[in-house]
Design a protein around this nucleic acid. Sequence first.
DNA 1: TATTTTGTTCAATATAAAATGAACAAAATA
DNA 2: TATTTTGTTCATTTTATATTGAACAAAATA
Lengths: 177, 177
Amino acid sequence: METLTEKTEGGAKANSPVPLLNPVEIEIIQIFVQFSRALGQPRSLAEIYGLLFISHEPLPMDTLIERLNLSKGSASQGLKYLQDLGAVQTVYVAGERRSHYKAVAELRNLAGRFLRRQILTPFEGGEIRLNRIAAQAQKLSGEQRKHINARVKMLRSWGRNVRRVLPFVLKILGDGI
Amino acid sequence: METLTEKTEGGAKANSPVPLLNPVEIEIIQIFVQFSRALGQPRSLAEIYGLLFISHEPLPMDTLIERLNLSKGSASQGLKYLQDLGAVQTVYVAGERRSHYKAVAELRNLAGRFLRRQILTPFEGGEIRLNRIAAQAQKLSGEQRKHINARVKMLRSWGRNVRRVLPFVLKILGDGI
DNA sequence: TATTTTGTTCAATATAAAATGAACAAAATA
DNA sequence: TATTTTGTTCATTTTATATTGAACAAAATA
């Protein structure tokens, strides 16, 4: 993940010698970055979520940009995505004009929305295709048709099982804390 | 996904007018391609698995290369990956020198190995980090330390829940067909 | 043994995805 | 109203990943 501390180049203007992130923040963010890779999500999302997760107070976008070394665009889009997912919420901070953000840390909600978006929705599109395939298959000769019908049946069953498993997953994830 | 039928360019040598894939194969492969995107896996894996899944007989690498328009490298690496995952097996075909491949179509096994690789392994690395973080946190002042300890506790709980949920998932996926 | 078939490896290339930052808009303040 | 602050959008650039294909190796056949 590259060092996340200020690179003090030997330039004219003295750079701030203070690290952008402390060791704890770095480790926490690395956990989320690693996990985001496993889920195929962009690193910037993990960085944003990670820093908000470990921060004891809500942070404005500027702070995220500065400390994570993000572009405005990434920060803005990343926060929007995380809000849509329900992983981040805005918080009103007295006397502050800027929106402040905090991590929503309920695994059940996070996982639920993510799984629904990522797994369930693609599976639903599949249903439509399976009907088309079943229709097509009837035009084919005996041997072929039989095999295709079996496969279609199997995919339908997979779909049912996946849909069936979600509520259980969410229940278990929601139980302990 | 681009049309997957032979592009009969008006060249000198007459191209085979026979489509590389029939409509049913195309639809099935599209289902797997769509799903692979959701899981962040390369398209070529989905194409290979999809064609083997719907084929009523085991296929050699050559056939996959030809019909899916893959390079040798992709086909070789893709088959290796799918075999490691347990999603594809080699089959002996009498009188044939080349290995033939077939799709392993048990959702339980597929999902199990995939989840273990993709989710569980990264989570385990996290445990080590959490211990380092917990140690670091003790150096900090009261307010901060309290919050970090709470977060570490939460992440540990997430890890437990994720590990706890896997057996249930596998059980349900293995039940119906 | 020489030749063909079959398959692997990996540096180079192509492709897809994420990040950037300039231009813009909306709202708050002076 | 003019100016500053805050945030969004999106064409361009960068980065990461997948794919290619030439070189290579191993095994089977002639």
